[in-house]
Amino acid sequence: MEGIMNFLYIITVIVVAVLLIRWIGAWMLRIDEVITLQKEILKELKNKNQ
């Protein structure tokens, strides 16, 4: 039972670390801002085509 708990703990730590690194990377590269701007541009283009 202890081995399974240790395994689950290690997997959880790895998953959290990967998600945290991805979030920090996206924030530092401003990818979230680029996606937001692309959505706004797409909305404007759709409005102009109607």
Rank of each mutant, 00 (worst) to 15 (best):
W27M: 05
L42N: 14
R30H: 11
M1D: 06
V18F: 00
K39M: 13
I31F: 11
V16D: 06
V18C: 01
L8H: 10
M28S: 08
L20F: 10
T36H: 14
I14C: 01
I21Y: 05
I24W: 13
L20H: 02
W27T: 05
I24P: 05
R30E: 06
N6V: 08
M5L: 13
W23Q: 07
K39R: 15
Y9F: 09
E44W: 06
K43F: 07
D32P: 03
K46T: 03
I41A: 14
E40G: 08
K43S: 12
L8R: 13
L20G: 11
M1E: 04
L20S: 13
I31V: 08
R22K: 06
Q50D: 02
A17H: 00
L37K: 10
E2K: 12
Q38F: 12
N49K: 09
E33Y: 12
I14S: 02
T12N: 07
I35R: 11
L45A: 06
N6Q: 14
A26P: 00
Q50H: 01
I31H: 10
N47F: 00
A17L: 02
L37D: 14
M1Q: 05
I10P: 02
T36F: 14
N47P: 00
T12S: 13
I24K: 11
L37E: 14
V18T: 04
L37A: 09
K39W: 10
I31D: 10
F7R: 15
E40P: 03
A26N: 15
E2D: 07
T12G: 12
L8A: 13
K39I: 09
M28C: 10
E2V: 03
I11Y: 10
I31C: 03
E40F: 11
V13E: 11
L8K: 14
K43Q: 13
E2C: 03
I31N: 08
I41T: 12
L45S: 05
I41Q: 10
G3T: 03
V13M: 14
L20R: 01
L29Q: 13
L29D: 09
A17C: 04
I4Y: 06
N49Y: 04
R22C: 05
L45P: 01
I41P: 00
L37M: 07
R30G: 04
R22W: 05
T36I: 04
L45W: 07
N6K: 15
E33K: 15
E44P: 00
G25D: 04
V34K: 15
